[in-house]
Amino acid sequence: MLIWGWQKRIHTLAMITLICGRCGNPAAHALRKLVTKFTLFFIPLFPLSTKHHLECTWCGASSPVAGPQVPDLLARANAESMGPAQYQQPAAGGPNAQWPQQSAPHPNPNWQR
């Protein structure tokens, strides 16, 4: 008796902030890899297929990613994870310099300061 089949595994490679093509929100997207492996006696032996896709954490939409785009997305995720100290600071007198700093309105209009 020979038992064979396949096994699917999903690996989350990175989280990237992108604008979703479905909902239009700037939200985190999970870059995931789906690997299907051939199994013999429930032991995974070799991969049959590998697919990548992006999943929006806001609306749950999933879109396939071509293989050549994966390294670029991983590089972008690594740049985001470096934190704000690695990014260039905007120059003084940037595009919003003429606007006065205002506090955001409170969500409850009856609230008194």
Rank of each mutant, 00 (worst) to 15 (best):
H29L: 11
T57G: 12
R76I: 07
L31H: 00
C59Y: 09
P44W: 03
N96H: 14
A30H: 01
C59L: 05
Q86T: 04
K33E: 12
T50Q: 08
E80K: 08
I16Q: 10
A97N: 09
T50Y: 10
V35S: 15
N25H: 02
P100H: 08
Q102E: 14
H29E: 10
A91Q: 10
Q102N: 07
C59A: 06
G83D: 01
T50C: 12
F41V: 14
A14P: 06
H52R: 09
R76S: 05
H29S: 08
P68Y: 15
L34M: 11
F46R: 13
G60H: 01
L31Q: 02
I43W: 15
I16Y: 06
P90E: 14
A66D: 07
E55H: 02
S49T: 09
H52D: 06
F41Y: 13
A30V: 01
Q88T: 12
Q98H: 15
S81H: 09
P47H: 06
L13N: 00
A91V: 05
E55Y: 10
L73I: 08
F42A: 12
H29P: 02
Q69P: 04
Q101T: 09
P47I: 08
C20A: 11
Q88H: 14
N25Y: 02
N78K: 06
M82H: 03
P47G: 11
E55K: 08
L13M: 02
L45P: 09
S62K: 00
T50N: 08
N78G: 05
P90M: 09
L40W: 01
P95C: 13
A104K: 08
E80I: 07
P90R: 03
L18Y: 12
M82W: 02
C23Y: 04
A97Y: 07
T57F: 01
A104C: 09
C59V: 01
G94D: 14
P71L: 07
L74K: 05
P71I: 04
L18R: 09
C20K: 13
T39R: 09
T17C: 14
P100Q: 10
R76K: 06
A104V: 05
V65R: 10
G94V: 00
P90F: 04
T39D: 08
R32G: 05
I19L: 08
G93E: 01
R76D: 11
M15V: 14
A97R: 14
S62N: 04
L73W: 14
G83Q: 05
T12F: 09
P26V: 06
G60P: 00
A91K: 06
H52I: 03
H52Y: 01
W58V: 03
W58P: 02
T39W: 03
E80M: 06
E55C: 03
L48P: 00
E55I: 07
S62R: 00
C20R: 13
W58A: 09
F46V: 15
G24C: 00
R22T: 08
M15I: 14
S103W: 06
D72E: 15
N25F: 04
F38C: 03
A66S: 12
W99P: 01
Q102A: 05
G67W: 00
G67F: 00
A27R: 02
I16W: 11
E55L: 07
T36K: 10
N25Q: 11
P100T: 08
L31T: 01
C20I: 12
P44E: 13
F46A: 15
